[in-house]
């Protein structure tokens, strides 16, 4: 019961950060700032959702795979953020006009 409550709490927190990322995408004035919002808020959202689900899994192997997914998602989002930042920077510098 306590575990269930804890997991609900974590899931709600995760949702909150997902919605924050969405709001950031909507409200932040420039694209770099939106990239900041997405990278940070989304990772935290996914991490919290994953932690919340950890209390609901049937066995340890599930838990290991959950953590693996999250770790990879962290790496992926860091790389994605970097790639997009470079792309954006190149556009702003005027090397590439194909916006």
């Amino acid at each position: 019961m306590i575990l269930d409550a804890l997991s609900v709490l974590l899931l709600l927190l995760g949702l909150f950060f997902f919605v924050s990322g969405l709001l950031g995408l909507w409200r932040f004035p420039d694209t770099f700032a939106r990239l900041h919002a997405l990278t940070k808020a989304d990772n935290l959202g996914l991490g919290l959702v994953m932690t919340g689900l950890l209390f609901q899994v049937p066995d340890v192997l599930w838990a290991i795979k959950f953590i693996l997914v999250w770790l990879l998602a962290l790496v992926a989002s860091a790389v994605n953020a970097h790639l997009i930042a470079v792309f954006l920077h190149r556009q702003q510098e005027g090397h590439d006009e194909s916006a």
């Binding site: 990322g21 995408l25 939106r34 990239l35 997405l38 989304d42 989002s77 997009i84 916006a99």
Partner: peptide, 10 residues
């Protein structure tokens, strides 16, 4: 395009 790329990530 870049804004859309961001949304794809989300």
């Amino acid at each position: 395009l870049t804004d859309r790329l961001l949304a794809v990530q989300l």
